[in-house]
Simulated scan of single mutants.
Amino acid sequence: MTTPYSTTTGRARFLLLGDSHAGAVGRAARAAGLPFAGGPTGSGRDFLGPFFDPRGADDITFRDAEAERLYRGFLDTLGTRALGWLTVPLVCTFGLSVHTVATAANWSVHRDTEGAYTPGFLTSALFGDLVRATARGALAFYDRAAALGLRTLALLPPQRVPGMADPQVFFAAQDVLHEELRARGVETVDLRAHVTSADGLQRPAFCEPDDTIHGSLAFGRLVVAALLDRGV
């Protein structure tokens, strides 16, 4: 899922960086003829722990060679030499593959003998600290973007919880990350009210068929419409 989706017809409207969740957005933008640069640069788990280093005063370097190659290509498409020189909004999904954060096996230690969490655990300071520690690399990236003065829009993920993930942790961790992004001045694109059923899960019309994680092209179109509504 690391195929770049950059378009080059016309002046790019935004830089798209992220994991595989960026794929549906790139496809929808391309289908709509909306010029942009970027696309997926790796899988969700690649962007939770530390994944980049500062490069001078105005840029970053991805630690993974393929992600770095893709990133440099995206900057070339924009005619920009560094992230800090970006003149269009940054649209990003880093750190928001919440199903990975919510991997059930990682949270079993916090359940009691009957399999339940201690009352209040999922809203506790300890839980928040654990989520922030898990996604520390992504949060550091958003800190860097804020320090560079970029307009950054983060896309909340499709509301899909695969079998390996704990639904309670998914929704609670998403809330923690949402607040962390907002505290950093990141604009969040939150489509939950438009794409979910009463149970909080994504409706089939917005799910990629034969896939337990990703949003469909229809979901990507809603994201693109939300970006346009925000003047991107």
Rank of each mutant, 00 (worst) to 15 (best):
A28N: 01
V109R: 14
P4W: 11
W85E: 14
F36P: 00
G149I: 11
V25K: 04
R72G: 01
A173I: 07
F121T: 07
G115E: 11
F52G: 03
V232H: 04
L90F: 03
E66P: 01
L181D: 01
D19K: 12
E66M: 07
G200W: 07
V88Y: 02
G79Y: 03
E66C: 02
M164V: 14
T118R: 15
G120P: 01
R221A: 06
P119W: 04
A138C: 05
G163K: 10
L16Q: 03
G23R: 13
A32D: 05
T212W: 11
L75M: 08
R203G: 08
L130N: 09
S6D: 06
T2N: 13
A165D: 05
M1K: 14
P50I: 09
R11I: 11
R111G: 00
L156K: 13
T41H: 01
A82T: 14
H214Q: 12
R30T: 02
T41W: 01
T80D: 00
V223Y: 02
H194Q: 15
G38S: 06
V98Y: 07
R221F: 00
L201D: 00
L96V: 07
S6E: 05
L70D: 00
T103R: 15
T87M: 01
A22K: 05
V169Y: 06
D129T: 14
G84D: 01
L126R: 15
